[in-house]
C-alpha cells in the first residue's frame, strides 16, 4: 500500500502531498524534511528506491521535480515506479507537456487527477484514456456551474437595476 505521495522540487519546495495513512501535521512536516534530505542528495545514476524507517520510498525525478511514493517493504517497487510514471503521463497529457509551473499554479488539478488514479493508497485506474475522460467531465461540470452562476447573477443584476 502507498502510505503517502510527495512531490518535491529540487530546491526542496513541496508541490503536492497526499497521505493515505494517518500522520499528524507534525509528523507530516518531519517526514517531508527527512525525506527531502535523503532523496534530493542522491546522485543521478542510482536506483530509484530508498529504504527509510522500515518502509521503502520509490522516487523518480522528472526535470526539476521529484515524485516520491512511500510503500511497505514487501511491495513491488517497479510497479510503484510505473504508477508514478503513469501519473506523470496523465499530467502531461492534461496540461500538454507539463512543467513545474503548471503544477504550482494548478496544484488543485494535480490533486483531482491523483484522486482518479489512487484511492486508499492503491491503484484505481490504469487507463489513461479513462482518467482523461473523467477529468474532462469534472471540468465541464465546474464550467457549467460557473456559467449558470454568472447567468443567474446577470439576471438578478438586471432585474434589480
Amino acid at each position: 500500500m502507498i502510505h503517502f505521495v510527495l512531490l518535491i522540487s529540487r530546491q526542496g519546495k513541496v508541490r503536492l502531498t497526499k497521505w493515505y495513512s494517518p500522520y499528524t501535521q507534525k509528523e507530516r512536516s518531519k517526514v517531508i524534511r527527512e525525506l527531502s534530505g535523503v532523496i534530493l542528495t542522491r546522485g543521478p545514476k542510482l536506483c530509484n528506491f530508498v529504504e527509510w524507517r522500515g518502509y521503502k520510498v520509490v522516487y523518480k525525478r522528472y526535470a526539476s521535480l521529484y515524485f516520491c511514493m512511500c510503500v511497505d517493504q514487501e511491495d513491488n517497487e517497479l510497479e510503484i515506479l510505473e504508477i508514478i510514471h503513469h501519473y506523470v503521463e496523465i499530467l502531461d497529457r492534461y496540461f500538454g507537456s507539463v512543467c513545474e509551473l503548471d503544477l504550482i499554479f494548478n496544484f488543485h488539478k494535480a490533486y483531482y487527477i491523483l484522486d482518479e488514479i489512487l484511492i486508499a493508497g492503491e491503484l484505481q485506474e490504469s487507463s489513461k484514456k479513462t482518467v482523461a475522460r473523467l477529468i474532462a467531465a469534472q471540468d465541464s461540470l465546474v464550467e457549467t456551474a460557473k456559467e449558470q452562476a454568472s447567468s443567474i447573477s446577470n439576471i438578478i443584476a438586471q432585474a434589480t437595476k
Binding site: I119, A120, E122, L123, Q124, E125, S126, S127, T130
Partner: peptide
C-alpha cells in the same frame, strides 16, 4: 471492466 477488476483485486 479492468478498472473495476484492478480495484477488486486490491
Amino acid at each position: 471492466d479492468l478498472g473495476v477488476l484492478t480495484s477488486s483485486m486490491s
